[in-house]
Computed example of a mutant assay.
Amino acid sequence: MQRDYSLLGENGRNAIETGLAAAEWYHSDVSRKDMKALMKRSDGPALRDTAILYGLMICFAVAGIALWPSLWSLPFWLAYGVLYGSASDSRWHECGHGTAFRTPWMNDVVYHISSFMMVRNPYTWRWSHARHHTDTYIIGRDPELLMMRPPALVSIVINFFGLIDAYNGWARMCLHASGKLHPEETCYVPETEAKKVIHVARIWVLIYAATCALALVLG
């Protein structure tokens, strides 16, 4: 039987009524001293890794452009695409949590850059991820459930290449640019954040459109 994973459905209401939503779960007893040591951060490693990532991407892009339209350019574009589509996700996640850098604004800068690269609105996704960690895998509450039952195997294989995520990202970004939030997003995004969601979406859609137009003009 297909479950209702919608945040607006019966399972979401049941989770609230039964106390599953925002529930108090077991926490391991970790001393303040140990927790402080575990949470110790430094800007150095993150700055180094970020410089390596974007430096490699620039090098691969330059090589791809220089060799275009020769087939010799393909390995460089492939390497560029892999870094663009995979490394951005981990930086989006860690910088969104504020754990990559010690300095908050550095986390914010890389978080927004990564969000742009992943076509994820930085404001809706920050609140979505907060809900995900509050109600992890609670059906009807967690907006970031990946594996559903019964499993949609074809969709899983297709999304291995990011095609579904890309489509959903573009669709949601265009919706935001039109001045609207998805009904499910209104469940966890505060009304005070709506203007930020719409504002950043409109700027990003313009940048995406300008990039596509430039690519078409240059051939």
Rank of each mutant, 00 (worst) to 15 (best):
W125E: 11
Y167D: 08
I156P: 01
A171P: 15
W127P: 09
P151C: 01
R149P: 04
W170Y: 15
G169L: 09
D135V: 06
R126N: 11
V119G: 10
N107K: 10
P122L: 02
M148F: 04
I139C: 03
R149H: 09
N107V: 06
I113N: 11
T134D: 10
R141E: 02
A130D: 11
T136R: 09
A166R: 15
N107W: 05
R120S: 05
Y167Q: 13
A171G: 11
T124K: 07
L145N: 03
W125G: 05
L163E: 04
H112C: 10
V154E: 00
L146A: 04
G140P: 08
F161G: 11
D165P: 12
W127M: 11
R172V: 09
D135L: 05
R172F: 06
D142A: 00
E144P: 01
T136D: 03
W127Q: 10
T136G: 00
R126W: 11
L153C: 02
T99F: 06
N159M: 03
T99R: 15
P122G: 03
P150Q: 03
H132M: 03
N168S: 12
A100Q: 15
V110K: 14
S128L: 07
R172P: 11
D135W: 06
D135E: 06
F160W: 02
R126P: 05
F116E: 13
S115C: 13
M147T: 05
T124I: 07
P151S: 00
T134A: 09
P150N: 01
W127V: 05
I113H: 09
Y137C: 05
P143C: 00
Y167A: 08
M147F: 08
A166G: 09
S115V: 07
T103Q: 10
S155Y: 07
V110H: 13
W105F: 13
D135I: 03
R172N: 13
H112P: 12
P104F: 02
T103Y: 05
V119K: 15
G162S: 07
I158A: 07
M173S: 11
R131E: 13
H112G: 06
T136E: 01
L163S: 09
V119N: 14
I164Y: 04
I158K: 10
A130Y: 10
G169M: 09
S155Q: 06
V154W: 04
M173D: 10
I158R: 08
M118C: 15
M117P: 14
V154N: 00
N168C: 12
N107F: 04
W127T: 09
H132A: 03
L163W: 12
V157A: 11
R141Y: 00
M147W: 10
P104M: 04
I139H: 03
R131Q: 13
R102H: 15
F101Y: 15
P143M: 01
F161D: 05
T136F: 02
N121I: 04
M173P: 14
S114D: 11
I139P: 08
R102I: 09
L146D: 01
R141A: 00
